[in-house]
Simulated scan of single mutants.
Amino acid sequence: MDTASIRDYVESAQPIIEDSPQMQEATTKASILNDFIELLGWEIPANTELEYSVKAFSKTFKVDYALILGGQPVAFLEAKGLGKTLTSKHREQLSAYLQSENVRLGILTNGQEYEFYYRYLGDSDSQFKVEAVERTTLRKLPDKKGIIEAYQVSTIHNEESIAIIEHIRKLRKSRDTLTDDKEELATAVVDLLTDTVSDAIESEAQTQAKEMIDRLVNDIESEIDTDTPRRLDNEDSSTDSEDRITQPYSGEISQSGDVAETFTDSVQSDLMASIVNYLIQNHDLISAIEPLPYIPAKNRAIVNDEPTYNDKEMKQARELEQEYYLEVNLSWDQKQRELGRMAEACGVEISIRENDDI
């Protein structure tokens, strides 16, 4: 699977959604989700059974799509109508299906919202639990290539899916620990160095220790999906995503001390794209940074008029308005730095922050 295939699916589904935003479940499956099944490599009826019977809540239900390998279900996709917002009840329903049938992977979607689930064995109580691996939208699917690949039939068949998901979970937890406990970890590093080497290096060690942790966090975010909402792996699956993952990132454009525009988003790349689009439309950003490709440092194109540079695809090109492309495969610190450079080129001030109270 490549990003272009995911983008093709999105571009095909978007006009259907715009034309019929309230379509019922049957129409949603026929018009949109059958193509998503095909994108994952699931084939109806070769390896995918429709209306698969499962037992849950002491009753028998029908899960919309069941991926069958070796005669056993290995993944479920539960569909809802486009006009129906996904709720905690729907999540509990899919969770019950996974638990009752001993299935490890599940997807819940209404064609516009996409939620990927994973059933795993808890560390402390040896009980199987169901966890949200990713919650996203149709428009953001091209940025989620890594997690989508874990639900592809070929990846599941090769028994690689669990390893991919577990690796992502461990990286996210490591990133959160480094971020939340930065001061304590830096102090521990300083103590180790001063005890082992000399207390004469304490001042330099304090600065270097914090910078080392920042670099490590950046490296981790470069490996995993930096667009994942914060603490998704610790969410209570019974809580609506709208209540728990709400606009943790914000930006503000000012000119001559007056606020011109504010931006908020739950996804870093979406926030960055919104701000860059605003600068293009309102402050002639392209003229300010020409010639394209715009390469502010080293050999990496950040803004270009095509999604390639030096005959290679940009790592994660986000299509902007007026047919420009933005590289969003950047850590949070890198995104802030590049936005600052572009704002300065346009002669405006910018303030970007991560809202820690979310």
Rank of each mutant, 00 (worst) to 15 (best):
Thr85Asn: 09
Thr87Val: 07
His90Gly: 07
Arg91Gln: 06
Gln93Glu: 15
Tyr97Gln: 05
Arg104Lys: 12
Gly106Val: 04
Gly106Asn: 04
Leu108Phe: 01
Gln112Asp: 11
Ser126His: 06
Phe128Ile: 05
Phe128Tyr: 15
Lys129Trp: 09
Lys129Glu: 09
Glu131Gly: 09
Ala132Tyr: 00
Arg135Pro: 01
Arg135Cys: 09
Arg139Gly: 03
Lys140Gly: 02
Lys140Leu: 15
Lys140His: 13
Leu141Phe: 08
Lys144Ala: 04
Gly146Gln: 12
Gly146Phe: 04
Ile147Phe: 11
Ile147Lys: 01
Ala150His: 06
Tyr151Gln: 07
Val153Thr: 14
Ser154Ile: 12
Ile156Asp: 00
Glu160Val: 02
Ile164Phe: 07
Ile165Thr: 06
His167Cys: 10
Ile168Leu: 03
Ile168Lys: 05
Arg169Asn: 11
Lys170Trp: 04
Lys173Ser: 13
Ser174Asp: 06
Ser174Met: 10
Thr179Gly: 08
Asp180Ser: 13
Asp181Met: 02
Lys182Glu: 07
Glu183His: 04
Glu184His: 07
Ala186Trp: 00
Val189Pro: 00
Val189Leu: 12
Val189Cys: 03
Val190Cys: 10
Leu193Asp: 00
Asp195His: 11
Asp195Thr: 15
Thr196Glu: 09
Thr196Arg: 13
Val197Pro: 00
Asp199Asn: 14
Glu202Gly: 05
Ser203Thr: 13
Ser203Pro: 02
Glu204Met: 07
Glu204Tyr: 07
Ala205Tyr: 00
Gln208Lys: 12
Gln208Tyr: 01
Lys210Ile: 11
Lys210Asn: 06
Glu211Tyr: 02
Asp214Glu: 11
Asp214Trp: 03
Arg215Glu: 14
Val217Gly: 00
Asp219Cys: 04
Ile220Ala: 05
Glu221Ala: 13
Ser222Lys: 14
